[in-house]
C-alpha cells in the first residue's frame, strides 16, 4: 500500500518537474528570443543639450546619423546589446566615443537619450513612446 502510494507520488512529482522544466524553457526562450525596439533620441534633456551630430551603431551594425531633435529606431534580438556613440563637435571631428553594454531583462522597448548618454549621466534611459 505504502509502496504504491510512494510510486504514485513519485510519478506526479516527475510530471511536476517536467512541467516546471518546460515552463522554465519557455521563459528562457522568451528572454533570449524577444525582439526589442531601441529608440535613439537626440533631444535636449535637462542640462544635456542636443548633440550637433552623433553617430550611433548597435552591436557593430549599420551606423545611424542623428542631427539635433531627430529620433531613430533600431531593433535588437535578445536582452543584451552593445551601443557605441560617436559624438561630433562643431568642427566635424569626433570629440567623444562612448561604448556601453545594456541589459534589458524583461522590458520590451527602451528609449535612450543620447545627450545624457554621451554626457555620462546615469539615467539616460527615458520612457519610450506609445
Amino acid at each position: 500500500m505504502f509502496v504504491a502510494f510512494l510510486k504514485f507520488l513519485m510519478r506526479w512529482f516527475q510530471r511536476l518537474v517536467l512541467v516546471a522544466a518546460l515552463i522554465a524553457l519557455g521563459i528562457w526562450l522568451f528572454y533570449i528570443g524577444r525582439e526589442h525596439q531601441i529608440f535613439l533620441d537626440n533631444k535636449t534633456f535637462g542640462d544635456f543639450k542636443a548633440l550637433e551630430q552623433v553617430n550611433v551603431s548597435i552591436n557593430n551594425g549599420e551606423t545611424v546619423e542623428l542631427m539635433p531633435r531627430e529620433r531613430d529606431m533600431k531593433k535588437v534580438v535578445g536582452p543584451k546589446f552593445e551601443i557605441k556613440a560617436e559624438v561630433f563637435d562643431d568642427k566635424g571631428e569626433i570629440s567623444n566615443t562612448i561604448t556601453k553594454t545594456i541589459n534589458l531583462c524583461f522590458s520590451k522597448d527602451i528609449m535612450i537619450n543620447l545627450p545624457a548618454f554621451a554626457g555620462g549621466a546615469e539615467n539616460f534611459i527615458v520612457p519610450s513612446p506609445k
Binding site: L29, F30, I32, G33, R34, E35, H36, V77, K108
Partner: peptide, 8 residues
Amino acid sequence: WGVVGIPG
C-alpha cells in the same frame, strides 16, 4: 510578444 527566430 515579439519573440523571433528559432526561439520564437
